[in-house]
């Protein structure tokens, strides 16, 4: 069985985001990058599935992104190789900050097709930077296969997968024909941490480059801006005796509560 996992290098969530002075990009100074937290769960699941299946199973990790410095997406492929993936595939993107999700899905779909046989493609449900929540289902649509989003459990039996999906106000158990795409919710797998020898061993595993001729993006980003500042609020008071005043303000001033 061939399992593909698509990952992204994202700024660490504790990072403050500053807009560069041209209003077009974020200031890279001091920004630390990490494997997307949902992508990490997808990787853990892919490796778990491979290890549970007897025979010749492989996990291939694919990432597109920057190819330089701290933000280099190849570093994140090394993370996935250290976790146990067999091979990495890197798609260089000269301008990932302005790339729209359809373009990314097109690149990933092309790279996935180039892997020959594949049975399952896993993604994180969302990248915590763009927050499009789109690349998984879009890639599935371009590949012409089914997609189950927000998976919290996944089992493979023969040519089918049974996926538990955390949907709105309900949990669904879905049977899907393979090949298929699945996006990972946090609870899909426990987070894994590589051992030192796996980190060292990852250097010996292959990272191939997939050349993709990026089409013009489906959107034009005009500018990036800081969020509108919130006005400084007021401390209504201290302790429970401040509660009646707070409720009065919420009703009369903020108009956020009515009874």
């Amino acid at each position: 069985m061939q399992i593909i996992v698509c990952v992204k290098a994202v700024p660490d969530t504790a990072t403050r985001i500053k807009i560069a002075s041209n209003g077009q990009k974020i200031d890279q100074e001091g920004v630390k990058y990490a494997l997307g937290p949902y992508d990490a769960r997808a990787c853990a699941k892919a490796i778990e599935l491979r290890d549970a299946i007897k025979g010749d199973s492989k996990v291939i990790a694919i990432a597109s992104g920057f190819s330089d410095g701290e933000r280099d997406a190849k570093k994140r492929l090394k993370d996935v190789l250290a976790l146990g993936a067999d091979k990495g595939v890197f798609i260089a993107d000269p301008d990932p900050e302005h790339r729209d999700p359809l373009s990314v899905a097109q690149a990933l779909a092309a790279a996935i097709k180039a892997q020959g046989k594949w049975d399952l493609v896993l993604f994180g449900r969302q990248a915590v930077d763009d927050q499009n929540l789109a690349v998984g289902p879009m890639t599935a649509a371009l590949l012409g296969v089914a997609c189950v989003t927000d998976a919290v459990a996944l089992e493979v039996t023969g040519d089918k997968a049974v996926v538990t999906r955390a949907a709105e106000s309900r949990t669904e158990t879905i049977e899907v024909k393979l090949p298929a795409c699945v996006t990972a919710q946090r609870d899909l797998a426990e987070e894994k941490y590589p051992k030192l020898k796996d980190i060292l061993g990852a250097g010996k595993k292959p990272i191939e480059t997939f050349a993709f001729a990026w089409p013009a993006p489906a959107w034009e980003v005009k500018k990036l801006s800081a969020p509108p500042p919130r006005q400084a609020g007021k401390i209504v008071g201290e302790g429970p005796d401040a509660v009646p005043k707070l409720l009065e303000l919420l009703q009369s001033e903020a108009k956020a509560l009515t009874f």
Binding site: I17, Q131, A218, E220, K223, P227
Partner: peptide, 15 residues
Amino acid sequence: PVYAGKAYATLEVKT
């Protein structure tokens, strides 16, 4: 919003 609201992008979809 991008970066979960740490920044905002203004854009035009071309399709």
